[in-house]
């Protein structure tokens, strides 16, 4: 009887039971995971807008900027999580190292997206805006940026989903988020494999990624009614 129960609760399908058993902790980690995934994308976008604009405005800046951001993106996340606290003089276990590292990744990804999105705005449209008397800043925010929205939101979708996956890595060094579930699964599998926390971690990460992706998609839709009108022509 005891063996039966044991084997049932160690089945991968027991993940929901595992969630119910540790609901408060798991929901706390979900919340941590959510803000750790979202805030860096927002920060990254705010930094990428001026940088992407610079890369477009001064064409000599584009190649080096793309090389640098590409390189930054290849630094393993675990290395950044470990290196950021001593480099910035932070507490070794501050939760800030994750959003800082992810902001670097998001910025790197989005600089190219913003630059290419702005580059896709038709030249005639920019010239017409100038000729009608837009000043450069107003032209950027009211003509160029709105037209670049579809390209930028496509990049945001990639960035936000990538972040959900990278945040989990920080769980394995003991920082609170859904990654902790993998750490638990590993610890509980010392004698024999114990799957529920691992499956639960995967399911919650995937659901979170789907929901965040859907939110970006909805924002995109709300900002670009003009694209739907064209498709339904």
């Amino acid at each position: 009887m005891l063996t039966l129960l044991d084997s049932a609760s160690s089945s991968p399908w027991y993940f929901f039971g595992y969630f119910l058993d540790h609901r408060a902790t798991d929901l706390g980690w979900l919340w941590d995971h959510t803000w750790l995934s979202v805030v860096p994308v927002v920060v990254g976008l705010l930094l990428a807008l001026p940088l992407g604009w610079l890369a477009r405005r001064y064409s000599w800046a584009y190649p080096p900027m793309m090389s640098i951001t590409g390189l930054l993106y290849t630094i393993p996340s675990i290395a950044l999580f470990v290196l950021i606290p001593p480099l910035l003089g932070l507490d070794p276990l501050t939760p800030l190292q994750v959003p800082i590292a992810l902001s670097i990744y998001s910025t790197s990804l989005l600089v190219r997206v913003v630059a290419d999105g702005l580059g896709a705005v038709p030249t005639e449209t920019v010239q017409a805006a100038t000729a009608l008397g837009y000043r450069p800043l107003a032209r950027f925010f009211r003509v160029e940026l709105p037209i670049a929205v579809p390209v930028i939101t496509a990049g945001l979708r990639v960035a936000v989903v990538a972040n959900v996956s990278i945040v989990a890595v920080a769980g394995t060094i003991g920082l609170d988020n859904l990654g902790r579930l993998f750490d638990q699964g590993y610890t509980l599998s010392v004698t024999e494999p114990y799957y529920p926390p691992i499956v639960l971690g995967i399911v919650m990460c995937v659901l979170l990624a789907l929901v965040l992706d859907a939110i970006v998609l909805l924002v995109d839709r709300a900002l670009t009614p003009w694209r739907r009108a064209v498709r339904s022509r």
Binding site: P122, E124, T125, Q127, A128, A129, T130, A131, L132, G133, Y134, R135, V143, P146, I147, V149, T224, W226
Partner: peptide, 20 residues
């Protein structure tokens, strides 16, 4: 920009704002 607002401008391919 003030000068330009007093001068109408028509460009090849119209150069309309696709989002408006």
């Amino acid at each position: 920009h003030e000068l330009r607002r007093q001068i109408g401008y028509v460009i090849q391919n119209a150069g309309l704002f696709p989002h408006r």
